[in-house]
């Protein structure tokens, strides 16, 4: 059990469209994996299968000590089991998805209070600490609509961290941001990586992936085309498809 995340033979299709074909992926504790690839290649679907927001049709997903097998007559996990499984993975979405009817600190407290049944005072203290960590101590009591995109995404990261997940999943966390706000979010992610958080990051920030990720996985049409140490894959891609994809990014290195 030396891997924190272990995906084996994962399959998923929507109707007649096959989105994931036999995906296998292993991530060691503390490793950062950047998942890159053209739009529509199945990156989001793969992340969402990892926390069961999308139910895979076949294969196996193990995160920490929790393992689910799909398809082949194996029983689908019930809603309670699914919920418990999800609570162990933090997910950060492209469009933040903060709860607009709660203040910033309430957003961050929601998981611990409502899922773990933590007393409010304790959750409040944890939330404030996490908000300080992402640089938002002065925004604890405002509502999300008063925040910039970069601030919203940092709250979303704090909200996910409040559940103390074993892994963090980022789905294009900076794609919806104005260019000048990307840096502050990447900064928080870089700190998390340095602290040893296990992360899978779907991103189009190639230079960030090269610098922060241990490994890069390149996906196209539902298969992993190439994977390896971040610098190797990005600087000297072996596959033609990877080279073509990376040639669209000029800001390499």
């Amino acid at each position: 059990m030396s891997y924190r995340i272990e995906v084996t033979g994962l399959r998923k299709s929507f109707g007649t469209l096959t989105v994931l074909r036999d995906i296998s992926l292993k991530v060691e504790p503390g490793q950062v994996v950047a998942l890159i690839g053209p739009s529509g290649s199945g990156k989001s679907t793969l992340l969402r299968c990892l926390n069961l927001l999308v139910m895979p049709e076949g294969g196996q997903v193990r995160i920490g000590g929790d393992c689910f097998t799909f398809g082949g007559g194996s029983k689908m996990p019930g809603t309670k089991e699914q919920a418990r499984f999800r609570s162990n993975t933090g997910m950060v979405f492209q469009h933040f998805n903060l709860f607009p009817h709660m203040t910033v600190v309430q957003n961050v407290m929601e998981g611990p209070v409502s899922v773990k049944g933590m007393p409010k005072r304790e959750a409040d203290a944890i939330a404030r600490k996490l908000l300080a960590k992402v640089g938002l101590s002065d925004k604890v009591d405002v509502f999300p609509n008063k925040l910039s995109g970069g601030q919203k995404q940092r709250v979303a990261i704090a909200r996910a961290l409040a559940m103390e997940p074993e892994v963090m999943l980022f789905d294009e966390a900076t794609s919806a941001l104005d260019p000048e706000l990307v840096g502050e979010v990447l900064g928080v992610m870089r700190d998390l990586a340095a602290e040893g958080m296990t992360m899978i990051i779907v991103t189009h920030e190639i230079s960030f992936a090269r610098e922060v990720a241990d490994r890069v996985v390149f996906m196209r049409d539902g298969v992993i085309v190439e994977e390896g140490p971040a610098r190797e894959v990005i600087d000297t891609p072996q596959q033609e498809a990877t080279r073509t994809f990376l040639s669209h990014f000029h800001n390499r290195g």
Partner: peptide, 23 residues
């Protein structure tokens, strides 16, 4: 209500019923 709201709640580990009530 945008489906991203339910997804965010589910991702935290809330059950569908709790997502409905709280979010």
């Amino acid at each position: 209500i945008d489906s991203g709201q339910s997804e965010a709640g589910m991702a935290l580990g809330m059950t569908p019923a709790r997502v409905m009530r709280r979010i």
